[in-house]
């Protein structure tokens, strides 16, 4: 459906009057991924690790510096944003917001009926169409955002932390809506999140990202039951779990995320990793296969074979 190969995006850091380039933010640094039809890839990582940049690259909002994106013919993309207050134009009525895509595509017959059907799909009352975004709560706005995203019948949607800014009680409703839409329309999702909680609800496959690189990649069950990378383990530890008594390996992170402008040499995670040893600051670990479709980039583990995703 959609595939990325060795995708890279660096942002130059300019300083001073003459705009000298003093460094680069390696937002996305050689990422491979594949999302099949009707499937969800959960992308997890801390703020600033390049998740959103990766999403924008896949949507074509940014040009990659190198690498390629292979899209299936007829692939139509859209996005649902994190911030339900900044993602809707405050001067437009809901009807204008959700039908804009149709108008741009010149599918202007039955606009009103399409808008009403969209409201039904995202479970909002039809009279919402005449209102302005500020008259809605965060969860309702996110429903409007979803209606806008599905209006033009796309088959791939980037969900950029769609529930992170919502009340916990609302989150499940929005996630359930997204799952139902996926079943109904056969949508593929790139589901971005900063913890593994929401991703568990949504994804079939999970990718863990740290400072521009994917450090672990695999089927949901594998990642949650047998995490390999210390970073994944620490993320799992920080997420609330339905089995609080289950025995868990304690992995506590030291310090903050290092600057993405000059990421650490060797393994980028070694400055915070409690298991780091001699090799880690010197050699950068490659993403290697451990079991069927389970990949990890860490010197602590011995791979079965060295193969790309």
């Amino acid at each position: 459906m959609i595939e990325a190969k060795r995708l890279k995006k660096y942002f130059p850091v300019e300083r001073g009057f003459f705009r000298r380039k003093t460094g680069e933010v390696k937002a996305v640094d050689g990422v491979d991924l594949f999302i099949g039809k009707g499937k969800t890839l959960g992308l997890v990582g801390e703020s600033g690790c390049g998740k959103t940049t990766l999403g924008k690259l896949l949507l074509g909002l940014l040009e990659p510096d190198s690498g390629e994106i292979i899209k299936e013919k007829g692939l139509k993309t859209n996005i649902v944003f994190q911030d339900p207050f900044g993602s809707l134009n405050p001067r437009m009525r809901v009807e204008q917001i959700v039908t804009e895509g149709l108008k741009i595509e010149k599918r202007i017959e039955h606009l009103k009926r399409s808008a009403e059907r969209l409201m039904d799909t995202v479970e909002l009352p039809r009279k919402s169409l005449a209102k302005y975004p500020h008259q809605f709560s965060g969860g309702e706005r996110q429903r409007i955002s979803i209606a806008r995203a599905i209006a033009t019948k796309p088959n791939f949607i980037v969900c950029d932390e769609p529930v992170s800014s919502l009340d916990v009680s609302i989150r499940v409703q929005i996630l359930t809506l997204l799952v139902n839409l996926q079943k109904e329309f056969g949508l593929s999702y790139l589901f971005i999140a900063h913890d593994l909680g929401a991703v568990r609800h949504m994804s079939s496959t999970v990718a863990v990202m740290y400072l521009g690189k994917i450090v672990e990649y695999g089927p949901k069950e594998e990642i949650y039951k047998r995490p390999l990378h210390p970073y994944t383990k620490s993320l799992l530890l920080s997420a609330p779990t339905p089995y609080p008594k289950a025995k868990k390996e304690k992995v506590l992170l030291k310090g903050d995320v290092p600057s993405a402008v000059n990421p650490p040499e060797g393994c980028r995670f070694h400055t915070r990793c409690p298991y780091a040893f001699e090799v880690c600051p010197i050699n950068e670990p490659l993403l290697m296969q451990y079991s069927t479709n389970h990949f990890c980039a860490c010197h602590l583990h011995q791979p079965k074979s060295n193969k790309n995703i």
Binding site: I79, N89, E100, G101, R148, T152
Partner: peptide, 24 residues
Amino acid sequence: DYVLAAKILGASDARIIFRHILPN
């Protein structure tokens, strides 16, 4: 974000300038 959303929907520059940015 709403400007990005309009871009993804394929809105022209004129549409983005006059319908999304200018009124705000």
